[in-house]
Amino acid sequence: MSAATPAAAASQSVLDVTDFSVEFRTRAGIVRALDRVAFSVGRGETMALVGESGSGKSVTAYALLGLLDAAGRITGGSARLEGTELTSASPAALSAIRGKRAAMIFQNPRAALNPIRNVGKQIGDVLRRHAGLGARAAAAEAIEMLRAVGIPDPARRAGAYPFELSGGMCQRVMIAIAVATRPALLIADEPTTGLDVTTQAVVMDIMGRLAAETGMATILITHDLALAAERSGRIAVMHAGHIVEDAPTKTLLLYPRHPYTRRLLAATPTAAGNLADLRSIPGNLPDLRRDDLPPCRFAARCDRRLPACEAPMQWRELEPHHRVACWNPA
């Protein structure tokens, strides 16, 4: 998708991604996991990245932060974090960026934490390594961080090991670790999947509050459109390694233009609707190992397809801040 025009105001943006492509080499062929992905996230903004499982949401996160496994590599494009190019940064530079200026939280908090180190020390480690604090200052700040993420009795809980804490508390510890160094960017990959909705609400409140207080830009990766609806200012919809639509949250929900976005919404249960009104999306994601992937990777599933859809895909700015990659938007 050439001529990417990220929707966020460029002056405020923390992260600018353009024409970002990622491939995996596997024995069964090359997986074209991301193809010319483009978006921007601004200061204090929460952008949700939504799409079916396998659409490339996690790969986007991992690739941006230099966490792809050995089979994967960035094959093109650019990703600038506050002006620093990430795609050409050395592993050492990326590692420094990950501790300090960009942080990520994962779906399974318990697995992401060190099981044999108490949580206060784990937060302190980050502060010592990346914020240059001494041991005592780091320990004190760790307790403050636990307080900031709403852990009751933080001074005592700092001595707890992950197995002594509930899933919701572990995720709050992960958030504390992630935001301890006041990163400019937080990528949260399905941060509440597997948590109870009551806990999810509390965890999301905390993330929202921290973003508002610190001006942190957040990418909220979720397969739950309702969660995205409640918690983001903007939604980018991903399908088979393409971002297909990107708009302010309300606009996207009320006036979805890409056929895939409309299908996704039509499949999502609402508080008021009936089961009979819901529609599944026909077909499956295409096999990303194919050599002959069509320019529109939704074409085989699309009921608005035209002969024109064979042409190379281009972004269309339908309105300011509302982009779609489709030749025949609804």
Binding site: M169, T198, A201, A226, E230, T270
Partner: peptide
């Protein structure tokens, strides 16, 4: 009440959003 209030909805956050804290 706390459970229902915590369910994300496509039509966005309600103003009365009640929170069940604690475990």
């Amino acid at each position: 009440r706390g459970l229902v209030a915590a369910v994300p909805r496509l039509d966005g956050v309600r103003a009365d959003a009640l929170r069940l804290v604690g475990d």
